[in-house]
Simulated assay, not measured.
Amino acid sequence: MPTSMPAPSIRIPIELLTPTAFAQFGAVVENPATAPASKLPIRHRIPPPEAVSANQGSATKYLDVTHMSNLYSLAPSKKPAKAVMNMFVCSPRNLRPHEPSISMPSSWGDLDLDEDEDGTGSYQKQLLDVAILERHPFTTQTFIPMGLAQHDRHTQYLVIVAPTLPASASRRHTGRPPPYPTPHVQRKRSVMDIFARARPSPYTNETVPAQSPFSRLHPSARPKGPGLPDLKNLRAFVATGAQAVTYGAGTWHAPMIVIGDRPIDFVVVQFANGVDNEDCQKVLLEPDASASEGVVVTVDTDSSGTVQVKAGVGSVKAKL
């Protein structure tokens, strides 16, 4: 049975999925020449991956567009993992009608725009209840949509993520130790390490700090610790069919959420060792005694069914 945590009444606006906005949670895989972020001001972009010519000059090859991390050496069982590739066929989610609610503001905006900017006066305002979050503490996880056009207006998917709270804050939320302890990494010190920490250093006039074994990993791919999700900083992004997404190891996220007319097939690439609590950890979000509804994402669509971006860079007028 998954652990649970009390959830405040909070409504989350939807943002445009861009590599810059998503960087602390993982990576966005997209063609940098045609991606939504290519239309944003330069200050809101990150440098594109290195590109080389391929296939006798008929293709452009972008290098290292995402990275896979295998941290199962930290898992309690020490059981080795292997790379796996699965398929998820995700059906559209049922949304509930919009209704006013007293909720605390999201850290990323709590906008409720009443004007209809699609010119037809037919904005549809609906709500998505977020009842569960999960994470894969020792592996990245890449979702690659299939058969969904970049400009498909009638079917899109949402990427909902949250940072990890410090372990001490998790104890305050639940009154008990963190539910999913991550073992402390004890690195054996070599003779070089011992001398490097000496004062003064025998090699230079300065001390040389020991380098973390994870320092070369992208920050989103490093171990996150045993903490619960930070619900006040939960974020929701809308993706197009031309975007794949990689969750960093240990990133709290909602199961993939499809909005629209039809299912989306996702090929999912990750590592796994077959130990349930090491491959996937879940937490149920239960509204606390003073909350009227818990964690909710506001989903506004125009007359064509396109999800509207209401917060962050490219908000309101972003065209996906």
Rank of each mutant, 00 (worst) to 15 (best):
K125V: 02
A75L: 06
P97D: 13
D110C: 03
L95W: 06
A81H: 08
L111H: 15
V89P: 00
K78Y: 02
R93C: 06
L127Y: 15
S106G: 11
R96E: 15
D129L: 07
S73Y: 01
V89K: 12
L127G: 05
P105S: 14
F88M: 08
L113H: 14
K82L: 05
A81N: 10
K78H: 12
W108I: 01
K125H: 06
Q126S: 14
L113M: 09
D116K: 12
M87H: 12
M104R: 14
S73C: 04
P80I: 00
L113C: 04
S77G: 01
L128G: 07
L128Y: 11
S122D: 04
Q124K: 10
M87N: 08
K79G: 02
R93K: 06
E115L: 15
P92F: 10
T66Y: 11
G121D: 07
V89N: 14
S69F: 02
L111W: 12
Y72W: 05
S106H: 12
D110I: 00
D129F: 05
S103W: 02
G121K: 05
P92Y: 11
E99D: 11
D118H: 10
E99K: 15
I102F: 10
G119Q: 01
Q126A: 10
N86R: 15
S73T: 10
D114C: 11
K125Q: 10
L113D: 13
I102R: 15
L95Q: 09
Y123K: 13
K125W: 05
D114T: 15
S69Y: 05
M68E: 13
L113V: 12
N86C: 07
H67T: 04
S69H: 12
S122W: 00
S122F: 04
D114Q: 15
S73A: 10
P76E: 10
F88E: 13
S77Y: 04
T66Q: 09
R96S: 04
G119C: 00
L127F: 08
T120L: 07
N86I: 05
M87E: 12
P97C: 02
V130Y: 01
D118I: 03
A83M: 08
P100T: 10
V84K: 11
D129H: 11
N94S: 08
P100F: 02
H98G: 13
M104A: 08
P80V: 01
T66G: 10
S73F: 10
S107F: 03
G109Y: 07
K79D: 09
L113S: 08
I102K: 13
P100A: 14
K125F: 06
S101P: 01
L95T: 03
M87F: 08
P92G: 07
V89A: 13
